[in-house]
Design a protein around this nucleic acid. Sequence first.
DNA 1: TAGATTGTTAATCGATTAACAATC
DNA 2: TAGATTGTTAATCGATTAACAATC
Lengths: 225, 225
Amino acid sequence: MDESKHRPPKSKASSSPVPKAVVSRLSLYLRELQHHVREGQETTNSGQLGAQLGFTDAQVRKDLAYFGQFGYPGIGYRCDELIKKIRIILGTDVQWPVALIGVGNLGRALLGYKGFRHQGFRIAAAFDANPKMIGRTIEEVAVSDLANLSEIVQTHNIKLGLLAVPAEAAQTAADQLVAVGIEGILNFAPVTISLPEHVSQVGIDLAIELEQLSFAVLKQRPAAD
Amino acid sequence: MDESKHRPPKSKASSSPVPKAVVSRLSLYLRELQHHVREGQETTNSGQLGAQLGFTDAQVRKDLAYFGQFGYPGIGYRCDELIKKIRIILGTDVQWPVALIGVGNLGRALLGYKGFRHQGFRIAAAFDANPKMIGRTIEEVAVSDLANLSEIVQTHNIKLGLLAVPAEAAQTAADQLVAVGIEGILNFAPVTISLPEHVSQVGIDLAIELEQLSFAVLKQRPAAD
DNA sequence: TAGATTGTTAATCGATTAACAATC
DNA sequence: TAGATTGTTAATCGATTAACAATC
């Protein structure tokens, strides 16, 4: 049976899938626009926005075009307006309650990180396997037993999880998060974790980022030292 | 004058520039290989390595081919051997002393992070603007005044910097790092910083990573909640 | 030898850039 | 109106995948 015979004609409705790179640039545009507003700038344009981030003007316009028409020909973009639009696209026009798993070194830093709030995230609950941690309150967030994960995730309607546990514990913890209905995991553990298709994942491996830097530095001076 | 007439014939020597995406996958291969070794696996192959990370076998082989021939037809790759090769490529076959700027929440977590050491990095010095922090020792690293940056960077032969200061202070601190000869900066501040061409930069913006997750989760359930 | 898997070339696919009519 | 800048299409560029001879 020839599948192609049964494909619906390409319609505008089946909106082209948005490349991941576009979405990450969207976040950069947002950050830059917020900076503009703090500086008192009311409008900007694709040329300026791109130059500051090292992209071409065409790329900025193309990226935004995936989601709609936000600019004014001859003028550019109104910062506050575009900020609102991008936040709606990213889903951060409303605040997401987030669960933190693991309150070790890194977990506690995340609890204290002030940058989340303004961008639409709030750590609503924290968990740890260590009995000595359970019951403590850090940065006004109580540390709970993982046994209570399901209940707390439900009451706070939590969809996102920050995974800040040791590498050996990461997959198990991730499985627990999936089991209680978490839909997205930001994984700080330096291991690959497997998740079902419907659960999104972003990984941050601090050592890997330093490796990228190491390579870049080495490349600069081909045969040095 | 026709430049093309004077181009040297393409030689293997003028190695094609390596795409950034290739290098970041290289780090993932390394992490996976190290995991294999911990599990007692001696060899692997492009199919296995790719499957675990969600890449095709062809991609794995192509990526590695940028740097040389590391495999054995019919066999695959010897894990310990490939690990060594990748570390040399990334530059982490030797340990890099790193400077940390800012010992707030995040900076202290970085000081305590155990994952750096095994991958070839060591925080050799820490700095802060806050007089109350200067003189303290955290995780066996003394916190120094930024006034001593130049001297300490030189004595430890530090090339890489971790920038964990507030957004407002990031550009100034980056300028100071550049001034003392730092060649690469891992920037945790949620702002775009401008650096001279010869200084490499990698940025980690925690809120942006969560935004990517938010978007991905939203996409999963088109019109929900 | 037969089976497996590499390294590499060619084909495909997707993303970026250039160009320009439309518009403020 | 003239000047600036958008949104969008077509052209270019680069990255991924498929295919396969070479090799263990």
